[in-house]
């Protein structure tokens, strides 16, 4: 632990020193400080116009109601409507189910793969790595359509299960509220596990092999090594991937629309899809749609804070 701390200080010092130096150099040249802003100003304006300003607009819209362009302020009506809206509750429940099952499942799998692939004695390492990463080259829409057909009633999965006697009659995966959710979770996991694995693999390369050596001499088995060395060492990257995955899954849209289109009934509808439907499929109600969208914003903020707390990082 103390070794780690001293290492950290060594790395931090030069960066800090450099920072001081460049600042001192710059204070002499007033013009250079101003031109620095020229480099960043276009991006600042663009992000303000296309991200922050719409965020404020959406907040104002969440207190308005009406059809299409005829909007008027209705106070907290939209927010109250949320609690009595069965479709919203279904969307929130489904999204939470995807999140709670899919993100941990994927992260554990990705960690597991990366540890196995990090074994220097493993053969065909390159092949396994590329194979598991391959799903990431597909577009979300394309793989969703493929999964829809794979799990169709006459799809190859059903035929496989039938032929090998796992089931006695075909399962209509996408028309069953339970199985439809399972297919969606499987699909997302298939697409993103390799992506997360790459992060862990790269991080594992920076872990000093001698730590494992020492642990083995001390008699630690593979599981102890995993939980007491690998997981703590990878904590920052696990935190990073769980936050990005959480934000991603909270916004899930492409897969739902293209695999089940929210059905059967509203058994798989997600919050993003509901927002889309409220705005562009049903009679447009931009006000209420914005209220629903702010639920995602609130969830993203809360979950990110929780994950930071759980990881216990002082970053």
């Amino acid at each position: 632990m103390s070794q780690q701390a001293s290492k950290k200080a060594e790395v931090d010092l030069p960066v800090h020193y450099k920072y001081q130096e460049t600042r001192r150099q710059k204070t002499g040249v007033f013009f250079r400080r101003k031109i620095g802003w020229l480099f960043v100003i276009v991006s600042i304006i663009a992000i303000t116009i296309f991200n922050f300003y719409p965020m404020v607009q959406a907040f104002l819209l969440s207190f308005q109601s009406g059809m299409g362009a005829n909007l008027e302020y209705v106070g907290f009506n939209n927010w109250q409507r949320l609690f009595g809206d069965p479709t919203f509750i279904a969307a929130l429940t489904n999204t939470s189910i995807y999140l709670l099952i899919q993100v941990p499942l994927m992260i554990v799998l990705a960690l597991f793969f990366s540890v196995l692939l990090n074994d220097p004695k493993l053969k065909f390492k390159g092949f396994f790595r590329i194979a598991i990463f391959l799903p990431c080259v597909t577009s979300l829409v394309a793989y969703s359509v493929v999964f829809k057909y794979l799990f169709g009633i006459d799809g190859i999965i059903n035929q496989f299960l039938l032929n090998f006697g796992f089931i006695s009659q075909t399962i209509n995966f996408l028309a069953d509220p339970f199985w439809a959710k399972v297919v969606i979770i499987l699909a997302i996991t298939w697409r993103w596990t390799g992506y997360n694995m790459i992060f862990y693999l790269a991080a594992l390369q920076n872990v000093d092999k001698s730590i494992y050596e020492a642990a083995r001499i001390d008699g630690a088995n593979a599981f102890q090594q995993f939980f007491q060395i690998t997981v703590p060492m990878l904590k920052p990257i696990i935190l990073f991937t769980s936050i990005t995955s959480t934000i991603g899954t909270l916004q899930i849209f492409d897969e739902i629309v293209n695999i089940t289109n929210g059905g059967p009934g509203n058994a798989t509808i997600s919050i993003s899809q509901y927002i889309y439907n409220l705005s562009f499929e049903y009679t447009p109600d931009f006000g209420y749609a914005s209220t629903v969208s702010y639920v995602i914003v609130i969830l993203v903020v809360i979950l990110s804070i929780i994950q930071f707390r759980v990881a216990g990082e002082k970053k």
């Binding site: 600042i44 719409p54 965020m55 607009q57 916004q251 969208s293």
Partner: peptide
């Protein structure tokens, strides 16, 4: 600016569309 990475696209889609 980094905070904007946390903004869900679904939340700004409607205002952007109107814009």
């Amino acid at each position: 600016l980094l905070l904007s990475m946390m903004i869900p696209f679904a939340a700004i889609m409607v205002p952007l569309y109107r814009m």
